[in-house]
Design a protein around this nucleic acid. Structure first.
Lengths: 227, 227
DNA sequence: AAAAGTAATTATGAATTCAATATTCAAATG
DNA sequence: CATTTGAATATTGAATTCATAATTACTTTT
């Protein structure tokens, strides 16, 4: 029995606006015009405003009473806080995954891991990131904790637009790969405590934060408005 | 019943509905009548429906397209998943707190801790819970991570209505107190790794889950509806 | 010309209206 | 008598309308 997927207009609109934010078509700090988006999507203000309220709850935009909505301006601290949190969540996912994961699932992750190593050898950064992400997602899935997955997904949404930066120093990269070697070993031993520890400390997060400095908008940007 | 006539009407309404859920006036699985709530709060359907969408995003209710809203039915698994996640978040809060916390803040927490011990000695369960909660909140505040605090708060909202159960076996309780002794020691040494570990493993969570069996609605409740 | 005050315009907040979908309940069928 | 069908009713989804607050443009004053 396949679940009937709900098609709420407001959900559709919220997703579309989320894409616009992710792709940078709506800039941080930029005021969101209701009328403009209504015309763009061909919907009335009611579902659009509902979408804005949902997006505000999800942390992508902020609503100022009687003064409209704007895209949340990500600060370095905000992004760092989010990464710290996501690292903790990944740690939990590793711990739980070891309790539930099947041999077949481990084999699948091992294969992803090997593929990732290939990309590392060839210094194919984007494919590397791609597979890397798949590994972390596989662990999350294996954690068998829906609330965890949902929470992680929401946090990821918030920072998507600044994630996966193109830069990566050789030193950090090799350390990240070493981390992954240790992760695989812990996973294959089903040592949850250890895997959790590795994932929480996984340098990947700090790397990304470190390379983000140039991507994050600073306070004195053109759209800056004090709240 | 005071009428609502404030700005950010939808937020006000969402909070009020949240209270109704927490207090059990709206039962899990019960269908939420828009008209009824509109009359109760003295608002039109527009802000009420916005509130429902926000509450759905926050995970307190669920929306079925064209079939209205209903209070989320908490399952044992769902609650356990949430507790696991909150334990991980508390672990992170402990780790971060050790990096930022001032001597004065530690002293304040030490005092809360001593008060809690008094309540334990006197077997005053509710005051114990109260102070216990304050300690965990103080650590969260000291973590200096807004995203963490917000996320924790949201998860807590979801399970508030089944938390803080009245039962607590002596054995579990004494273990929880021991955990807290170790926590204080780690905190005063500012040993983040250790404090984090203790908080993640803090028996309190498992205790609560264990005592919840009677509180959680089961599948065959009167309001049960298949999805 | 700059500042301040005021009218005009625009955008937002909320109620109402209209349309689409689900639910109810009685009649019909086997 | 149980089940199904379909009209009547109720509820939800979305657009429109009305009200209110904010912004802009335009005077007026110094």
């Amino acid at each position: 029995m396949t679940k009937i997927l709900q098609r709420n207009l407001y959900r559709e609109v919220a997703d579309r606006i989320g894409e616009l934010i992710e792709q940078g078509e709506l800039s941080p700090g930029e005021r969101i015009s209701e009328k403009q988006l209504c015309e763009r999507f061909g919907v009335s203000r009611t579902p659009l405003r509902e979408a804005l309220k949902v997006l505000a709850t999800e942390g992508l935009i902020e609503l100022l009473p009687n003064r409209g909505a704007r895209v949340v301006r990500l600060t370095m601290k905000n992004v760092k806080d989010t990464y710290d949190l996501m690292a903790a969540l990944e740690g939990l996912s590793g711990e739980l995954a070891c309790q539930h994961i099947s041999d077949a699932e481990i084999t699948a992750i091992r294969q992803l891991h090997n593929t990732m190593l290939e990309h590392y050898k060839n210094r194919d950064l984007m494919p590397y990131f791609q597979v890397n992400r798949q590994i972390h997602e596989a662990l999350l899935a294996a954690s068998n904790n829906d609330v965890l997955q949902e929470t992680y997904s929401n946090l990821n949404q918030r920072i998507k637009r600044v994630r996966y930066s193109k830069k990566m120093t050789e030193r950090y990269w090799s350390q990240a790969v070493k981390d992954h070697e240790n992760m695989m070993a812990a996973l294959e031993k089903r040592d949850g405590k250890l895997l959790g520890q590795i994932l929480r400390d996984h340098l990947c997060n700090k790397i990304e934060v470190a390379t983000l400095a140039g991507v994050i908008e600073t306070e004195d940007d053109k759209h800056a408005v004090n709240g």
